[in-house]
């Protein structure tokens, strides 16, 4: 569903990631790697962040991604949950989403949104609160996941969705993510959280290191890293 070929990412002509050849088919995939190795950069470069220069090719569902603007990539079916989502005072959580999903009625959207708010244990009236303003880290993460579920993308990249979530929220998250991929979707998680990995049982693990990335079909690689650290892959 999402394929990268010779994908290179640079900032000010300095390469951060080079020649990545990765294939994320339908199902769950995880990305691991040491701090600062470029995992989030990879995700944001795919989304079209203005800070990054890219080269190579990326396709989503057979469609060239890199020639598209960020909003066109979103409309092509790509979603990225931010590690640190932006706060916008004066724009309510629901208003933000309602305008992004114009093909459904307001009442349909609101019913679904409130259902997710309840399921994730967010406070009543969360829909009316300003987007990510005075929200805890956990609330922001839950909101990002709710946005993903409402927008219903083909490919979702979640950047450390587990950080700041309590045990109940992790259970809800894993349940919702499992449901999400049953619909022939691709889910890519940047995570090092054992409990979540165990619950989701991903198909591949991609390890980022030294400006490159290697993809493994064997999930035991992830557990090995969790037990012994990244040094074992040198």
């Amino acid at each position: 569903m999402l394929v990268t070929q010779e994908f290179t990412v640079a900032v000010d002509n300095k390469a951060i990631l080079e020649d990545l050849n990765l294939d994320f088919g339908p199902g769950i995939h995880i990305i691991m790697g040491p701090n600062g190795v470029g995992k989030s950069t990879f995700a944001h470069a795919l989304m079209g962040n203005h800070k990054y220069e890219t080269d190579g090719a990326v396709q989503i569902d057979g469609k060239d991604l890199l020639c598209l603007e960020t909003h066109e990539r979103a409309k092509a079916g790509l979603f990225l949950s931010f590690q640190h989502p932006t706060a916008i005072e004066g724009l309510s959580n629901f208003q933000f989403l309602r305008q992004a999903i114009p093909h459904r009625s307001i009442s349909e959207n609101l019913v679904d949104y409130k259902g997710y708010v309840k399921e994730f244990g967010l406070p009543e009236g969360f829909d009316k609160k300003s987007l990510n303003v005075e929200a805890s880290g956990g609330e922001q993460k839950k909101n990002e996941i709710i946005q993903m579920l409402m927008l219903d993308p083909k490919v979702a990249i979640l950047d450390e969705p587990d950080s700041g979530l309590d045990v109940d929220a992790i259970n809800t998250l894993s349940k919702q993510l499992t449901n999400f991929v049953t619909q022939d979707k691709t889910l890519i998680l940047i995570t090092h959280y054992r409990q979540l990995i165990e619950k989701l049982n991903p198909q591949t693990v991609t390890v980022f290191k030294n400006r490159s990335a290697k993809q493994y079909d064997d999930i035991s690689v992830a557990y090995n890293i969790l037990e012994n650290g990244f040094a074992v892959h040198d």
Partner: peptide, 14 residues
């Protein structure tokens, strides 16, 4: 703020 614009773009707004 370019980051705000990017965040909105990433949700499909031109």
């Amino acid at each position: 703020d370019k980051d705000v614009l990017y965040y909105l773009n990433s949700r499909g707004y031109d």
